[in-house]
């Protein structure tokens, strides 16, 4: 049976992880090419955080500590998969982690802005986003579904993400100015 202290630690771990998970997911997405490998690495990071949680020094930001652990798992991943070249060098990984840690506190307003921006998309654009992110369909499958070509779908999704990024930036700036 778990002691009250163990239960408390587990709850603290779960809360802390949920708070940083979007930043870790973003870090892994930025660093690893294959979407399937990203899930594996994210699992590894979660396991590492769980195993080493008692080492965490509460005086330091949790997100920075977790991204530091994530960097190690990413480098391990590239070492173990010899066919893949490390496109992002260690210094780039460090700068990415810094950038994500610096904007970590923006996640909630960013998420709210995204929801508002998604609502401004056309129905067709929303359908593409949904197929890509909700249904997890590959570009070729989406192209088949909407009777288009993979190239056209790639371009459309690129433009949608550009539009969403601009929209989010405007809304965050407007929020900061209030």
């Amino acid at each position: 049976m778990s002691s009250p202290r163990e239960i408390e630690i587990r709850e603290q771990l779960a809360r802390s992880w949920l708070a940083v998970e979007p930043s870790v997911r973003a870090y892994v997405a930025a660093a690893i090419r294959s979407t399937a490998d990203r899930e594996d690495v994210l699992q590894q990071v979660a396991l590492t955080v769980a195993r080493r949680f008692e080492e965490y020094d509460e005086k330091r930001p949790f997100v920075g500590w977790v991204l530091w652990l994530a960097k190690s798992r990413i480098v391990d991943h590239y070492r173990s998969s010899q066919r893949q070249r490390l496109v992002l060098g260690p210094d780039v990984l460090d700068r990415l982690a810094e950038s994500l840690a610096a904007t970590h506190d923006d996640v909630s307003p960013r998420r709210e802005a995204l929801e508002e921006c998604l609502a401004t998309l056309t129905e067709r654009s929303r359908a593409l986003v949904r197929m890509r992110y909700h249904d997890g369909l590959a570009i070729t499958a989406i192209a088949h579904g909407v009777r288009s070509t993979p190239g056209s779908v790639r371009v459309a999704l690129f433009r949608i993400r550009e539009a969403l990024a601009d929209c989010i930036g405007r809304r965050l700036a407007a929020g900061a100015g209030e």
Binding site: A30, V92, L96, L100
Partner: peptide, 30 residues
């Protein structure tokens, strides 16, 4: 390697990607 702003953009777009995954779970237009 050459442009620090590219690292910032990569971080920004990766965050968008991660948020879209979450938003996509049950998202419908507000």
């Amino acid at each position: 390697a050459a442009d620090p702003a590219a690292v910032g953009l990569l971080a920004d777009r990766a965050r968008l990607h991660a948020l879209l995954r979450d938003a996509g779970g049950w998202h419908e237009p507000r």
